[in-house]
Structure formats: C-alpha cells, structure tokens
Design a protein around this nucleic acid. Structure first.
Length: 387
DNA sequence: TCTGGGGTCCTAGGACCC
DNA sequence: TCTGGGGTCCTAGGACCC
C-alpha cells in the first residue's frame, strides 16, 4: 500500500486557517522576491495551471488573486509525525518516501487487521479523523503499482489494482509516470515514439536495453508491472545539506564568504540537533549561467562545528568563487555516529569551547527567535531567506 | 517575470592495495 | 622491462524525486 497526503503543505495551511477555505492557496517562495518556485498548490490553485516546481513569478502571473504563503516546515512535521504514528500502528514495515508519503507492507497483516482493502479504507479514515486532512491510497501487488495507483486517484483517491488487472491499468499511462523517467529520459523516449507505458511494454527487453542502457531492463520490467523491491524502512540519513539562492546574483567576495559562514552555522545547528558528525564536505556553486560545480573532500576526522565546516568549505570554495554567483551550498555526508564519537585529540579543548558557544547561540535563538542573534559577519539580509 | 531546497542513487575514472 | 585483476575508496557530475 502507498499513502500520500493531498496537496500536503497547502492543506495544512487551510486546516490552520479556516478563512482560506475554497481559495487558491500557494505555498512557496515570496512572489515579490523574483526567485524561487511553488512547493505546493491546492486544487483550487491548480485550476489556474499552478503546480509544484513552477517558478513563483509564473504562479503569480497565472493566479494573482491566490493566497501566497511561506512554508512552515516545523508545523508540517508535527502533522507528519501523527500520520506516521498511524502507519506504524498497522505494520512494522513502513518505508517513508518523504514528509507526507510512505509505503506500507500489508503482507501478513491480515490476521491482525483483516482484508487489505478494508484496512486501507480504515487507515484513510483514521488520518482524516486524527489530522483533519485527506490522503490518497493505492493498494497493489507491489510498490511501484501502489504508488502509481495512489497518484492516479488523487485527490481523495482510493485505487486498488488487482493482480489480473495490472497491464490494463498500466498501458494507457504516460511514460513519464514510470519511476526513474524524468524530463530527460522522458523526452528521449518520446523522440523515439514511446509515449505510453504500453509502448514500452511492447518492446523487447533487448531494444529497451539498447535505448536506455543499464536502466533499460528495470524500466521494461516496471512497464510490465514487475517490481520485486521490498518495503524497507530505510537505512537512515546519508547527508545533510544547506544551500541558498541569492535574490540577485552576487559578485562581492565578502558576501560570498559571509554566506558560507551563515550556511555553516545553519548546518552545524542541524548536526547538533541530530547528534551527528560527517567526514565528507561538499560545496556547491552555481554561477549566473546556471552552470553548477561541486568540490568535495573527505577528511580523516568527522566534523560538526560551524568553525570546522566553515574552514573546510572556504578552503574548497575559494579557488572557484570568481565571477557572478547565483547559489552557494554546503553538504556534509559520510555521516558517522551519534554523540560520543571520538573527537580528534589535538585541539579538543578548543573544539569544546566553540561547541559551547554554538549551543548557547542555539538556546538564545530558540527562546527569542532567529533574528535575536547572529554572527556579526553573517548579517546579510538581501539574499533569499529560508526557514 | 525561466529554473528552490532538501534529498537519493548512479556512473566513470583514478588512486591505491593485495 | 611484456603491466593481471579484484576490491575499495574517492571525486565530479548528472538524473531524479518530493
């Protein structure tokens, strides 16, 4: 079974503000900022051609009377936690796909919960009763089909694909609905006359491989409804990243550096919250022409403090910072350990000192808000602020 | 009114080890 | 004085997903 909340961010906003009922609600960047995209649009807004990932300025052009809201992730997480509690109460095999979406393996839940279809209906009802929000449900013999099914029924969907109805269900679907067929692959396939899942399923595996390389066999199998991947609760987070797109491209070097500082502060705060360290640091630079590069290094010792992250990020970014820059980002991966990770012996005291300083900073920001305190060298307000 | 921010996974090629 | 082959780790880029 696959469950997915409908227009999740927008639905939460409407839940919290009953005055928005019936209005087009668009959650995303500030339409006046000039940069950014739509994170979520409710179905009223979609009537005007507004959808996720649409540039916010275009969303405003299409739906100027819409209600434009900034995302409130912590609120969405609260609701998400409640929904996942329900998921875990029906099966121990829950695989989260995102904040509002999961696969749930119903194999063997029959004795406890009865027929899968009945269980699906009950789950949908419980989500509505507990959160006040509507979810779409897909029930099918495997993950791929279940996901397609829940998408297919949206909004307020409940779609069951029986074993013997798989090919009839798949054949008419656009090729882009296949998992792993994005804009690039989709265009290539359409250029070859393959528009629907049925078109791909009628090819031989060999020609699919010739066209799609190593992906070929997998996609061909999906087109036949074959998917043997298990529902797996996930192997934990692989990395943490923070990036920012400037409202206007930046040439001033001091601003580039102070932005790296601010990103480091933000990353370090999240690393502390998650009690994690990372050995690999990657900086991402996107220039004005949208050309994007990354530079990374894997260190001997895991790091977590803002000072360490900033120093390494600066070292990697420095040689590439020439010219006009649109985006800067930092990512930490190769994550190791919970608290208690062995810290380098040399400079341990210094590290503790900065850690204490940063903890205090967290504290103050928690109590008085983000704007209460900031490093003097990261007081830059004219790039796009997120969270 | 071009193209956010958070992620994952894959590939190719090089370094290095046995 | 002809360079094997498997394995692992690493970097850079790219496709994709929500």
């Amino acid at each position: 079974m696959h469950i997915d909340m409908d227009a999740f961010f927008a639905a939460v906003e409407q839940l919290d503000r009953p005055d928005l009922a019936g209005k087009p609600v668009i959650v995303g960047a500030d339409p006046k900022s000039g940069r950014g995209v739509v994170s979520a649009a409710n179905y009223e807004a979609r009537k005007y051609g507004v959808h996720s990932a649409l540039p916010i300025t275009q969303a405003f052009a299409r739906c100027p009377h819409g209600v434009f809201l900034r995302p409130r992730y912590s609120r969405y997480k609260e609701i998400s936690d409640k929904v996942f509690e329900i998921f875990h109460s029906i099966s121990s095999l829950v695989e989260p796909l995102s904040i509002d979406e999961a696969f749930i393996d119903l194999t063997g839940t029959g004795r406890l919960h009865g027929d899968p279809v009945e269980l699906g209906r009950k789950t949908k009802r419980r989500i509505l009763e507990t959160t006040g929000l509507v979810a779409s449900v897909g029930i099918a013999p495997n993950k791929f089909l279940a996901k397609i099914a829940s998408d297919f029924g949206k909004p307020d969907g409940f779609v069951v694909v029986p074993e013997d109805g798989v090919q009839d269900f798949l054949d008419p679907l656009d090729i882009g609905r296949l998992w792993g067929v994005g804009p690039k692959t989709g265009k290539m396939l359409i250029d070859h006359g393959i528009r629907t899942v049925g078109d791909l399923s009628r090819m031989t595996v060999e020609s699919a491989k010739k066209l799609l390389g190593d992906h070929g066999e997998g996609l061909w199998k999906l087109a036949h409804g074959i998917d043997s991947r298990p529902v797996s609760p996930g192997s934990g987070r692989k990395g943490i990243s923070k990036e920012t797109t400037f409202r206007v491209d930046v040439t001033d070097n001091n601003r580039k550096i102070s932005t790296l500082r601010r990103l480091s502060d933000g990353l370090a705060a999240r690393m502390r919250a998650k009690k994690t360290f990372g050995r690999t640091i990657t900086v991402k630079i996107r220039y004005s022409g949208f050309i994007t590069i990354t530079r990374s290094d894997t260190l001997d010792m895991p790091i977590a403090t803002s000072d360490d992250i900033f120093r390494e990020a600066q070292r990697l970014a420095r040689p590439e910072l020439e010219g006009s820059i649109r985006l800067l980002g930092i990512r930490i991966s190769n994550l190791t350990g919970e608290e208690g990770e062995q810290l380098p012996l040399f400079g341990r005291e210094e590290r503790n000192k900065t850690k204490n300083f940063e903890r205090a900073l967290d504290d103050i920001q928690k109590r008085f808000g983000k704007d209460a305190i900031s490093r003097a060298n990261s007081l830059e307000k004219d790039d796009i602020e997120d969270d």
